[in-house]
């Protein structure tokens, strides 16, 4: 409770009014800080609801909200949103399918080179995406993976797999090896004890890793920009970039597309907190 201001005992005994007033002021300050920090997000939503489509005339509040911009955004970018969704879901499935067993192994098996593997994972986080794009472009060119959804899923997995391993491994370190051994004594193989015990117990960590992986891939812009050369496959991030590339004619449609692209992040922020909070293994060992 008390932080830098560890109040002397007498202060604690004062009437509750002072304390309450201080807390009310703190909450007010907190709301104000958040309002400033999130103003751009508000402005994005506000601009997307303006009837004119031009921010020049945008009111501070959308008094007469219009959804025309959304109609236009969906007609122009709807297919791209679906492309982004497929790529993001594909990245989640591919990355977790590889990362989950690896996390389990790195957490529970006593391999001698666990330290080396973890170091490689940490270092991989520091490699700029443009390095990957440079090399994958020429490799994809030869393999026919340019302008393809599998190509973008693989590229997005480069950062997703190590990140997912870091999240899931740290959780799986906490899975008591006793419950795994108990299962093996009962005759379950490694694969079965992984699927039946470790995965259910680590559900929250896996969901967390999955949600972040989804966001990574959904937000990807660099690989979409560099590993596509035609209009065939066009994630929505690239759609927004193309809106911005030319002289912006219609800010309303750009902002409506931006709001649609921001939706997963907003939903995650509201929905995922319970998964992060409920990361306890309690009740598994009984």
């Amino acid at each position: 409770m008390t932080t830098t201001t560890s109040a002397p005992a007498e202060l604690n005994r004062r009437t509750g009014d002072d304390i309450d007033l201080r807390k009310v002021l703190l909450t007010a300050a907190g709301v104000l800080i958040l309002a400033v920090m999130l103003f751009p997000v508000y402005w994005m939503v506000n601009a997307s609801l303006q009837p004119s489509g031009n921010t020049l005339n945008a009111d501070l509040i959308p008094l007469q909200p219009s959804f025309d911009n959304y109609v236009r955004a969906i007609s122009e970018q709807g297919a791209n949103l679906v492309t982004s969704l497929i790529i993001a879901l594909g990245t989640v499935v591919f990355s977790l399918a590889l990362a989950a067993p690896a996390s389990f192994a790195l957490a529970q098996f006593r391999f001698r080179w666990v330290g080396v593997a973890l170091l490689a994972i940490l270092v991989s986080q520091m490699i700029p995406g443009i390095v990957i794009a440079n090399a994958l472009y020429s490799a994809y060119e030869g393999m026919g993976l340019l302008n393809s959804i599998p190509g973008l899923i693989l590229a997005n997995s480069t950062s997703a797999i190590p990140f997912a391993i870091l999240i899931m491994r740290s959780f799986m370190l906490g899975v008591p090896s006793a419950i795994i051994e108990a299962a093996r004594v009962d005759g379950a193989g490694l694969v079965r004890s992984f699927l039946w015990i470790v995965v259910p117990v680590s559900r929250n960590a896996i969901i967390t890793a999955g949600l972040f992986t989804f966001l990574f891939a959904w937000s990807d812009f660099l690989f979409a920009l560099t590993l596509t050369t035609t209009d065939e496959i066009r994630p929505v991030t690239l759609g927004i970039y193309q809106y911005l590339g030319t002289q912006v004619q219609n800010w309303g449609a750009v902002m409506a597309t931006a709001v649609l692209s921001a939706t997963p992040a907003i939903v995650l922020l509201v929905a995922a907190q319970k998964y992060i909070a409920a990361g306890a293994t309690g009740g598994a060992v009984k």
Partner: peptide, 27 residues
């Protein structure tokens, strides 16, 4: 009161796709 909620919502700029933030700031 509300400190945890406000702190959670503060994460939003970090979670948004960067190109969405770029477009918004350009506007």
């Amino acid at each position: 009161p509300l400190s945890a909620t406000l702190r959670g919502l503060l994460l939003l700029p970090w979670l948004l796709p960067l190109i969405v933030s770029s477009a918004t700031w350009r506007a």
